Amino acid sequence: MPLHPDIAKALAAMPAPPPGPLDPVAMRAAEEAHVPPVAERLPLHAVEDATARTAAGEVPVRIYTPADAAAYGLLVYFHGGAFFLGSLETHDHVARSLAKETGLRVISVGYRRAPEHAFPAGLQDCYGVVRWAAEQGGSLAWDGTTLAVAGDSSGGTFAAAVAAMAYDDGFDRISHQVMYYPSLDLDLDVDRYPSLRENAVGYGLETAGLKPFNAFYLGSGADPADPLVSPIKRADLAGLPPALIVTGEYDPMRDEGELYGRRLEEAGVAARVSRYPGAGHGFVQHFSWIPDYHRAFEETAAFLRGAS
C-alpha cells in the first residue's frame, strides 16, 4: 500500500532541517519541547522515577505500573534516538502504551547517550538495568517469569545486544526480546540492503541521513564490525530469547531487521517478523495514535503471552 495518508500529511508539514552539522543539544531541546504535560498523558495506576544501582553505575529509570496487582511480569524498555536523542520524557508515551497493553510493569531506561558518553556506556547501562531488575525482583514484585527487553530503532539495537550479552554471561532470565524497526547493521553501505535504496527518499528517515545521525555513536568508539554494535554480525544466534521484530514497509532499515529475524529462525530461535504496511521508520514513536500502528503494542502483548 502507499505511505499512510496521515503519515504523508505529517511529513509534508515538517519544516526543512536547519543547514549545517547536527547539533545534539538543540535537537534534544526541540524533542523535549513537544512532550505533552503529565496531565495529558495516558493514565496508569502508578508512574514513578527511580535509580537503578548497577555494575555500570547509577542509572535513572521510570517505572510504569499498569494496575494494582500482587506480582507482575517485567519489561525493560530502551528508547530510540540514534544513540544521541530520545529520553525518558520523549518516549514516555511509548512506555505507557506498552504497560497498558501488555499488563507488565515497564522499566524505561535513561541510559547515557553519545557523544558525551563513549561506547559502550549506554549499552552497559541498559544491560545493567536488566540485571538490576532481576536482582531487585522482590521490590519490583516480579513474578519470576516474564522478563522481556524491548526497544525502538537504536533502542532495538540495544535490546538485541543486551540479549546477546546476557546469553554470553550465562544470565538466562530474559524471556523475550522485542525490536521495533531496529538498527542492526551500522555498516551503512547503501548497497547492503535493497530497502536502503528503495526507501531512500521521501519517507521521513532518509538513507542519506543515516551516516550523520549515527556519527555521534560511531565516533564515540562504536565499531560497526562489533556484534554488540551491529547485532546482525553475531556469528551464532542460537540460544537467544524468542523475538518479535516489527518493521515498516517504507523504512530504509526494513531489510536488516527482517534478515535478522530469518537468521534467528535458522538458528532455532522462535522469531516473528511483522511488517507494517504504509509505515516508515519511527511509526511506533510518532504515529501510534493511528489505530493501524497502535496495533504494534497489541501485537507485542500477544507475543509476550505466547499467543500465535
Rank of each mutant, 00 (worst) to 15 (best):
Q136F: 01
F83G: 00
F171H: 06
A243R: 00
G248S: 04
A8I: 04
Y127V: 04
H91R: 06
G151W: 02
Y193C: 10
E265N: 14
V201Y: 12
P194R: 09
Q124F: 07
I63H: 07
A114P: 04
A163W: 03
L237I: 02
L42N: 10
A121W: 08
F78W: 07
A222G: 08
A52G: 10
G144L: 05
A225P: 00
D255I: 09
L44Y: 07
G122K: 07
P291D: 13
E299A: 03
W289K: 13
A52D: 09
G202N: 11
D223F: 11
L74P: 02
E258V: 02
P227F: 09
V25S: 07
I174H: 07
L186Y: 13
G81W: 04
P252Y: 06
G151D: 05
L237M: 05
P194N: 12
K233I: 00
V130F: 08
T90I: 12
V61I: 15
E206D: 13
F78M: 14
A99P: 08
L140K: 03
G306T: 03
V106T: 10
A208E: 14
L186R: 05
P252A: 01
E249D: 02
P120D: 08
D168W: 08
D68P: 11
S183A: 15
A52M: 13
T51M: 15
A16S: 13
V246F: 00
K211A: 15
R275Y: 09
E265A: 15
V273E: 08
T51K: 14
D172A: 15
Y167I: 08
H286S: 15
A39F: 06
E48S: 14
L11C: 06
S154L: 04
V35D: 04
M14K: 14
S195K: 02
T247R: 05
L85G: 07
T146A: 09
E198L: 13
L264N: 06
V106D: 09
V273W: 05
V162C: 06
F213E: 13
A50L: 13
I232W: 01
L188A: 10
A12H: 04
R105E: 10
A225K: 13
V149G: 06
D251P: 00
A222E: 09
P120C: 12
E265W: 02
G57M: 13
Y72S: 08
D185K: 02
D152V: 01
T54K: 04
G137T: 07
D189K: 03
I290F: 06
G138Y: 00
S274N: 12
D187H: 13
S308A: 15
G86L: 06
A30W: 03
P241F: 01
G81H: 04
L264Y: 07
A133N: 03
H286Q: 15
P17I: 11
G248Q: 03
H91P: 00
L264I: 07
A50C: 09
S108Y: 03
A148H: 01
R113Y: 09
V130P: 04
A70C: 00
G204Q: 05
G248L: 01
